[in-house]
Write a protein that binds this DNA or RNA. Sequence first.
DNA 1: GCGCGCGCTTGATTCACATCAAGTCCACGG
DNA 2: CCGTGGACTTGATGTGAATCAAGCGCGCGC
Lengths: 234, 234
Amino acid sequence: MRPSDRDAVRQLPLFARVGDESFAALCQGALVQAFPSHVELVREGDLPDFLHVLLDGSVQLFSVRHERETTLGLVRPMASFILAAVASEAPYLMSARTLTPCRILFIPAATLRARLAEDAALAGAVIDELAARYRELAGELKAHRQRTVPQRLAQWILATDEQLGGAGRFRLAFEKRVLASLLGMTPENLSRASITLGDHGVRISGRDIRITNKGLLTQLIENGGRASTRTRRA
Amino acid sequence: MRPSDRDAVRQLPLFARVGDESFAALCQGALVQAFPSHVELVREGDLPDFLHVLLDGSVQLFSVRHERETTLGLVRPMASFILAAVASEAPYLMSARTLTPCRILFIPAATLRARLAEDAALAGAVIDELAARYRELAGELKAHRQRTVPQRLAQWILATDEQLGGAGRFRLAFEKRVLASLLGMTPENLSRASITLGDHGVRISGRDIRITNKGLLTQLIENGGRASTRTRRA
DNA sequence: GCGCGCGCTTGATTCACATCAAGTCCACGG
DNA sequence: CCGTGGACTTGATGTGAATCAAGCGCGCGC
């Protein structure tokens, strides 16, 4: 584990507040590994041995049922994933694969669990992280139930831009088919939704996304898209 | 707080392992209150002051957007709710209302957070609880994306029966419209789905639900309902 | 025990999105 | 350069669920 990685990991919300002793212990058994694109890191149903921390690249969390797969989340650098499975010592309920070349830090689950009992700050950080993830997922569920396809795309663009610094422009790090799966739609409909957003303050060309009118875009999300005038029953 | 309530709460996974000292502290500031049906307990966006523990009755967790509401979960007796908001000190991201007369225990959020730092066992229990809730929600999201309306109903019936002891029969504690909202469908379609399930091992009459053929029901969930023969692309 | 109202069911229609089916664009190797 | 293939787009059609619109039945109060 490089010193630079070590420092970066130390900055993570999950580890920022833990004691030096705990952090050293966690690093002790940890290892960093590089992976090429499109490698399966975790398979749904297996038991977790390591907490994963993504240092570089991007990772897709998904679940397969019959021949269909659905994407439950994307992980960006400097974030841990599958913490819930590690914390509850239960089988993974989603799979994970690399979407780009990645570097990943593995922290032995046993070490983490052992440290939890000793280090209240670590426990607190884990609680915060789990709560944040819970809320993220609740947001996804609400979005999926209450919003149309173009609205979900609009929401994702706004949220992603925010997360990436709010420059109003960014670049997809992965294929559009993955984004479609994340947003719970087909690639065909993602394409059509992109066209719709052209009238609502977003310019998409290839993998480049530019927000040209944030107000207009927000408005699309707030009121019901084309059904803006009609009121619906409770 | 009645001694019987106190004992019951002590049995909860969330509190079973905490130290006596912590438990006493938590009970100190706690209070039990009774509510009639259809009372709003928590409003989305407010800041959490208390962790809620449902002692009796049933509670609906929901979110409103425009004039539509979507149900994110139901709480049955002897379970805590809104733990994620309390743990992360962030605004509620769902509202809660009683569906039946309820008795609810309120534990001051500040007390709980203070105890977290002191009591590793409590922290561990909170972690387990949050992880379990996370997984529950992930399951809901998967169900909503990958299953048809009749399948979601079938899945809910099986899960609920399981949770209630697996007797193969139980009774709805609330209106069907609430169930429809929980399963992300309209009351009309819940009704139609009930008819469909008649051919798949479930007998529903009024609020009584009986599983007559668990194998058949499971099979409906496993293969794609009526689209059982066709294979679809990944 | 008789009407009244509400929750639920049933049927007709509409709508959003999925599916199916060709394209088009572009990156890559020859 | 030109050809090939995979990702994406565009268009036509299909379908599951929502919406709209009546009916039905059951519990409740008088």
